[in-house]
């Protein structure tokens, strides 16, 4: 068991997401930084779809009720275990009664917004429609289908015993992506892209966008140059996925994120490619960033590079595990 000590937690149980329930009106939910969740699970010898706790408001504290190996990945939040500093993107071992504290995200060579706490054995909540992720609308999955709060106790699954104590070189350093000195995400144009004026498109691709405070796990509302269609666009409700960039009448785009509803009715100018969603998921409010246009082949290559990084982490972790077992 782990117990949530923080008063206003705004943390939630997430795994890689719920991916085949759009036809029932259920969105994906899931970790905003899936690389952080994967890295933690790999270090701990967990199944890669084991659930962790995504933390987005700091400080955050939990107490371990038993001895557990755990990892803190994602935002570098000056984590401590009973006051002893832990390294970012690293696993460690806790004894029963010890308190893990995640402090404010640090500005360093890479700055994240969300931290991921994984535990050897995984957070053991029931699998609902194929996932343990928290689906807020409809209150399913996760811990009672809601955000965590003080006093919540989360069960931990049986650990495989193959956890290693090690750190991962953060993907923000291993897979950097910038445009004109700003962090960037790659975008494939979507169906209404060409219905925007040339001036709007030039601005969309060439100017920075800022993540406004009205941004959360549902979606990121951006501020920047207004986008105008050549003529009013009619769109009928259709299924969408995280990453879709919708443009409401205000002309200020909204990027659909993990808790967004699974259907949309606004024009879509583009979609942040799946391989870069973790980058956006880690960008703090106020970040200025750029969209970089790619075509299908480049988007697939980005996906391969991301999967290659995960495979490399898994390979070296398995080597370390084998050596320690020898």
């Amino acid at each position: 068991m782990i117990e949530i000590l923080s008063q206003s937690a705004f943390a939630s149980v997430q795994d890689l997401g719920r991916f085949d329930a759009v036809r029932w009106g259920v969105g994906t939910a899931g970790a905003m930084d899936r690389l952080a969740l994967l890295a933690g699970n790999i270090l701990l010898g967990n199944a890669e779809d084991a659930a962790g706790v995504e933390v987005q408001v700091f400080p955050f504290e939990v107490r371990f009720d038993a001895d557990h190996a755990f990892a803190v990945t994602g935002a570098d939040c000056a984590a401590t275990l009973d006051g002893v500093p832990l390294l970012p993107w690293s696993s460690a071992r806790a004894c029963a009664g010890q308190v893990l504290r995640l402090g404010l995200p640090q500005a360093g060579r890479w700055r994240g917004a969300r931290a991921c706490l994984t535990i050897a054995g995984g957070v053991d909540v029931p699998v609902v429609l194929g996932s343990r992720s928290t689906q807020l609308r409809g209150a399913i999955g996760g811990h009672e289908g809601r955000m965590l709060r003080q006093g919540d106790r989360l069960a931990v699954g049986a650990a495989s015993g193959a956890a290693i104590v090690a750190g991962v070189v953060p993907p923000g350093l291993a897979l950097p992506l910038e445009a004109d000195g700003l962090p960037a995400v790659r975008v494939l144009p979507a169906s209404e892209h060409d219905a925007y004026t040339e001036r709007s498109l030039a601005r969309f691709w060439d100017e920075p966008w800022k993540i406004t405070p009205q941004s959360d796990r549902y979606g990121y509302r951006l501020a920047g140059p207004g986008l105008e269609p050549k003529a009013p666009i009619e769109v009928r409700s259709h299924g969408i996925v995280p990453g879709v960039i919708q443009v409401p009448h205000s002309g200020q785009p909204i990027v659909q994120m993990c808790d967004g509803q699974p259907t949309g009715g606004y024009p879509k100018i583009g979609t942040v490619i799946e391989a870069d969603l973790w980058r956006l998921g880690e960008m703090p409010i106020g970040t200025r960033f750029r969209f970089v246009r790619v075509e299908w082949d480049a988007a697939l290559a980005a996906r391969e590079a991301r999967d290659g990084w995960v495979a490399e982490v898994r390979r070296v972790a398995d080597l370390m595990r084998a050596r320690r077992a020898a």
Binding site: V165, G167, E312, V313, V316
Partner: peptide
């Protein structure tokens, strides 16, 4: 830290 590829041993 001792770095091997993507990982580091403390």
């Amino acid at each position: 830290l001792l770095r091997i590829g993507a990982l580091m041993t403390p």
